[in-house]
Design a protein around this nucleic acid. Structure first.
Lengths: 124, 124
DNA sequence: TTTATTATTGCAACAAAATCGCATTAAAAG
DNA sequence: CTTTTAATGCGATTTTGTTGCAATAATAAA
């Protein structure tokens, strides 16, 4: 299934690139330069995740946050760093710190989701 | 507001104590010894969290998981350890490993939510 | 350039998780 | 036993995210 370039995809990506942080669906929707249907935005976000262009983090508010993959190899979608979610401006950013962890014997780790909640520099 | 002892509270706590792991609402509901309304179960769980009897973790599936606080001081609701969520049996358990982290200058950390997703010993 | 293929979109309906209003019930204090 | 009000049951609602389907449009092919 060959992907196509569409205004919707460009607009969504533009919002996330400009933000430089992870945003949830609502924030993306609110910042779009053109009018796009809710369902389409969700589908674009999901497709980008499938294609390794975005990565998705679920925060303590139960919402999905999406951010442009920067350090992610296109092959290996590495996401083993901490995230910081600011409860003030409702954004989530990747911290450079990698997460160190081990699991008990016999356990199999597949992915991690480490979020520090608090206030960012601007909102503290 | 003085709390009252009710069959609903006892039943919910019994399920969570027996499980020894964190369970989401649905699993709690399914394992109740008596019939309790959905909304009531949610309210009981929330009240227990407010009172420091349970702690709540939101996992990557977007659901809230609840577990009996064991190592938590009743004053200080410490939850700075890793959690392991098994995608097989749909449970979430507290790992003893504490999470080591720092935040950038000017940032204020309030709580953390660190989950390792994968398969537990039984489901691997 | 024109046509054909099918990925993508919009719309509406749907689903799941969790909350809320309100009248009723029942702990527990007096 | 009576009173007070926390807790419950029920139904409706909110929020987040997905899905079916017909219409649209990006791109490959003629």
């Amino acid at each position: 299934m060959r992907r196509r370039n569409t205004p919707a995809k460009e607009a969504v990506l533009e919002v996330l690139k400009k933000a430089g942080k992870a945003l949830n669906h609502e924030t993306v929707q609110d910042n779009l330069s053109i009018d796009i249907d809710r369902a389409t935005v969700y589908r674009v976000l999901n497709r980008f995740c499938d294609d390794g262009i975005l990565h998705r983090v679920v925060a303590e508010d139960g919402k999905q946050y999406f951010a442009v993959c920067s350090k992610c190899d296109s092959e290996k979608h590495s996401d083993n760093h901490f995230h910081f979610r600011c409860t003030g401006c409702n954004t989530l950013e990747c911290l450079p710190t990698p997460v160190q962890f081990t699991v008990p014997d016999g356990y199999l780790a597949e992915s991690i989701n480490c979020i520090i909640n608090g206030r960012c520099k601007n909102c503290a």
